[in-house]
């Protein structure tokens, strides 16, 4: 067990070192706060892989689609009836999110899940998850120009956003994200506080 962990760590360090090289040569503009002593590219990238598993689960990716129509269901298929993102991410005309999605989940399978703030990212900041590699997503999340103008503090706080937390209250018949909320939040904080490093790929 210890041995394995050690190997993993070694491997992680190597990956992370490669990662750091790539990161430094990339357009990565997020400057990690905190002292150099808290930075650990290996730990950070590993933590992000956990975060990534959650962000790519249907509960998150479904509202971070590559196109302008949200996804739905466990297979992340295009949302029936093709509701459009709209400028503010809240839908358009007669097809606004809140026309069906209430403030709370409704009982029963296939009923629209609810949240008081149900929406997609806005058109000028689409924050696409769908199809992104871990590295692409990490870079996107750390860049204020692509993460909704979030600095480190706001990024840390985002784990407490009601819609993010709502992923763990998905409504009847929907799977939970692969990590518990506590595990996710811990991984999210670890990723950011250890430097918000992007994995190599």
């Amino acid at each position: 067990m210890k041995q394995a962990t050690l190997h993993a760590r070694k491997a992680g360090v190597i990956i992370a070192l490669l990662g750091v090289v790539v990161v430094l040569s990339s357009s990565f503009r997020y400057v990690p706060h905190g002292s150099a002593s808290t930075r650990d590219s290996a730990v950070s990238a590993q933590a992000f892989m956990k975060v990534y598993s959650v962000l790519m689960s249907p509960r998150c990716v479904n509202c971070h689609p590559a196109g302008d129509v949200p996804l739905q269901g466990e297979l992340s298929q295009p949302h029936a009836m093709s509701p459009q993102r709209g400028d503010d991410g809240k839908g358009v005309y007669a097809m606004k999110c809140a026309n069906c999605h209430q403030a709370v989940n409704l009982p029963g399978p296939h009923m629209p899940p609810g949240n008081p703030n149900w929406h997609l990212p806005p058109a000028n900041m689409k924050m696409v998850f769908q199809g992104k590699t871990p590295r692409e997503l990490a870079l996107q999340l750390t860049n204020p120009a692509t993460n909704g103008n979030k600095d480190k503090k706001k990024l840390l706080e985002h784990a407490d956003d009601g819609l993010v937390v709502g992923g763990w209250n998905p409504g009847e018949g929907r799977a939970l994200p692969p990590l518990s909320y506590a595990e996710f939040k811990k991984a999210w904080r670890t990723w950011i506080e250890t430097g918000a490093y992007a994995p190599a790929k």
Binding site: M81, P83, Q84, V92, A94, M95
Partner: peptide, 10 residues
């Protein structure tokens, strides 16, 4: 396209 966007729910 606007009509599609508005009316595909009906």
């Amino acid at each position: 396209a606007d009509i599609d966007a508005a009316m595909s729910g009906n």
